[in-house]
Amino acid sequence: MIELTGITRIFRMGGQTIYALNQIDLEIQDGGYVAIMGPSGSGKSTLLNVIGLLDRPDSGSYQLDGRTVTDLSEPEQAQYRREKIGFVFQSFHLVPRLTAAENIELPLVLSGLAPSERKLRVNEALRAFDLSDRATHRPSELSGGQRQRVAIARATIMQPTAILADEPTGNLDHRIGAEVIALLENLHKTGTTLIVVTHDRELGDRAHRQLILRDGKIIADKKA
């Protein structure tokens, strides 16, 4: 469960103070499917980054699975990101030097798992995301859809409780985008919390809950 209370994130730009997030209170149940929407600069990516422990709020408290995580140390936060959260980005963020299999393996490497165990789980993931014949290809040799499948496989390899996707279809055409959404929704069906930041109204409508942000505030919270 994700619980945000009074979360505020401030950026200072040229002497001006910008409230990227302004006193956000939010609760997301485990297994939820939430779309965060709103115009550019409304704070939706910042909200996702705070939930994903990539960004520290200036004030407010954040409880993840009943534990306050805002005051954790840097290595402890890294461990939470590693074990509980999977990120999917608009521009995939694959390491260009590593093969598809090695990119998927990265979180397992960071967690210090033994190589034999890693191989097993990576092969399983490659099969599950239909990437077995692309295992030894580098990102530059993969199509956009394949790259995003690798990224999703990487985000899920640690079996996180939440997948955070920031415009996951932004760099893909409509048909491939729909395939990627289908993959993410399949993960949600197995019980993973799915939080998607998007501009795309159609994609937002598929979520069970829509948060509309404007100027750092939640102005609408629609449940389907």
Binding site: G52, P75, R82
Partner: peptide, 16 residues
Amino acid sequence: TSEIGLLKAIGAPAAD
């Protein structure tokens, strides 16, 4: 830089 950001996002502590 963006690769370092990614490593952090998937849970690499600063020490790693």
